[in-house]
């Protein structure tokens, strides 16, 4: 049994750049599997918070700790960026890349990449230049690449922005399957519908502060902060 890297604990963690507080200070305990959805208006600091948790944003103060040492923790996480980073390689080579980094043999990596390719409906396009894929296909490729190492925790930053209904549903299906296999998912979105469909827990941010953390059913029926209630009502937060 692999050691679990969860829970994740943030203790007064914040990021400040040029005197401006981008996110935090945040105190947070994320215990486990299932889908945690992070919502909040543009510029609230969602991307910054996700990057802080993942360890790719330099903290200005406070701590982010996992239940494992840093190396183990980092190796067991993946991140899908708001604009997916697609390597100038073929679809298959994009998928093989994270595996090859950790020393998986070429043949085995190829096999797993082919399976992943089929999983996202790109079977038959393995050899295509990944940079030529459509926006939705790129998004799915980035997701499949993030899942290929079987991470314990997967971060996604608005993975369905700019996608149509069908693609959104495909991605949600993949996410639910991953969550079903025990992957903890932490994801930001602007779609209340998507949050309702996926979330077990909800996080809500406004102006860099994490102001709500509650189970999804509680959040959607009786959010405590006026900002969250206004947001759910479709009001525009100033």
């Amino acid at each position: 049994m692999v050691t679990s890297i969860l829970p994740l604990r943030l203790d007064r963690a914040f990021v400040k750049r040029r005197g401006k507080m981008l996110a935090g200070p945040v105190d947070l305990d994320l215990t486990g599997d299932g889908v945690t959805i992070l919502m909040g208006p543009n510029g609230a600091g969602k991307t910054t918070l996700l990057r802080m948790m993942h360890g790719i944003e330099r903290l200005s103060g406070g701590t982010v700790t996992w239940a494992a040492d840093e190396e183990t923790a980092r190796a067991a996480q993946s991140f899908v960026f708001q604009t997916p980073v697609i390597m100038r390689r073929s679809v298959l080579e994009n998928l093989m890349y994270p595996l090859r980094l950790t020393g998986v043999a070429k043949a085995a990596a190829r096999k797993r990449a082919e399976d992943a390719c089929a999983m996202i409906g790109l079977a038959g396009q393995e050899g295509q230049r990944a940079t030529r894929l459509s926006g939705g296909e790129k998004q799915k490729l980035a997701l499949a690449r993030a899942l290929i190492r079987d991470p314990q925790v997967l971060f996604l930053d608005e993975p369905c922005a700019n996608l149509d209904g069908a693609s959104t549903r495909e991605i949600e299906t993949l996410l639910q399957a991953a969550a079903g296999r025990g992957t903890g998912i932490i994801m930001s979105t602007h779609s209340i519908g998507q949050a309702k469909r996926l979330a077990r827990d909800m996080l809500f941010m406004n102006r860099g502060r994490l102001i709500e953390h509650s189970p999804a059913d509680v959040f959607f029926t009786s959010a405590t902060t006026p900002e969250a209630r206004a947001f759910l009502n479709g009001d525009i937060l100033e």
Binding site: E71, R74, V85, M87, R88, P98
Partner: peptide, 28 residues
Amino acid sequence: ELWSEYHDLLISLNTSIFQRVRTLLWDG
């Protein structure tokens, strides 16, 4: 230019400096 494109991904994947050099040289 290539590094600014790849930066986030390669940091996120915990690549070593050697792996980064190889990736940039190969993809570039």
